[in-house]
Simulated assay, not measured.
Amino acid sequence: MAEEKDAFYVVRKGDVVGIYKSFSDIQPLLASSDPYSSGGRAFNVSSSSRNLQGAIQFDTGLAGSFSYPPNSLRNHTLGGSQAEWSTCLSCTLHFDGASKGNPGPAGAGAILHDGSKVYRLREGVGIQTNNVAEYRSLILGLKHALKKGYKHIIVQGDSLLVCNQIQGLWKIKNQNMGTLCAEAKELKDKFLSFKISHIPREYNSEADAQANLAINLRACEVQEDCQLL
């Protein structure tokens, strides 16, 4: 395969994503006795000659956006080693907010899991609207994921407003929403890769349960449970 001057290669094994500057770096992965899978999980390889300074987006088969922040590419692609990428941690975050009265007593709930353990998070947010609670739940989950050292994250929630505003698809008219959205975006840019997508409410029941429990907590009080899978 001929290599372009600015080409790079994206390799995905399950939820772990690596970026390599040279095709020769990924040949050992493809030269094994079962070159396209490991443990039943497929390798996906794609390439691009897009300038590495820009954000990269590609479709992974789910609704939403999947992006590499420009700083992450600059810091971790050109200077990072294969070992660094192979040990990056991936996780999935489900978030939901609840408000009794809208505005009224509100809570934020989040479920964070990586296939080996699951974190159940809840935070009291005081008297707030449902939209504020939704943003607070996303922020709660992102902060926790960063604290635990995760580098790649897939986010799902049933708030169309939050999902679309984070992706820049909907305008933000409320100043409070703008502040919360800016905080969430600042957090998401700290990951090497970030994907957010909207899901139906019936597929978000666990995060919803945590949000309803959080209504009974004091404002800014956070509780966490961890379970090994």
Rank of each mutant, 00 (worst) to 15 (best):
S49Y: 11
I153M: 05
G18D: 04
Q175G: 08
T179G: 10
C226I: 13
I154E: 12
T129R: 03
W170G: 06
R136M: 07
D158R: 01
K190Y: 11
L52P: 03
R122D: 09
E123R: 15
G40S: 11
I215G: 02
V10Q: 11
I153Q: 02
Q128G: 02
S47C: 10
V125I: 06
F43Q: 07
V45P: 10
E84P: 01
L89P: 00
G40T: 08
N176R: 14
N75M: 13
A98V: 00
Q53P: 01
V125K: 03
Q175A: 15
T60F: 11
P103T: 09
G104D: 10
R122M: 13
L73D: 04
K148S: 10
K151W: 04
H76D: 11
Y119C: 05
K151C: 07
P200K: 00
S65A: 12
G18C: 03
S81R: 08
K13R: 13
D96T: 00
L228N: 12
P28Y: 05
K117P: 02
K185Y: 08
A211D: 00
S22D: 11
K143T: 05
E134R: 05
F95C: 03
K13A: 12
L160I: 02
V10R: 10
E183N: 12
I139M: 02
G109D: 07
G64D: 07
N130W: 00
G14P: 04
N212G: 00
R201M: 02
L73P: 03
N51S: 10
D225I: 09
G168T: 11
F43S: 05
A219L: 08
G40H: 10
K147W: 07
D158M: 00
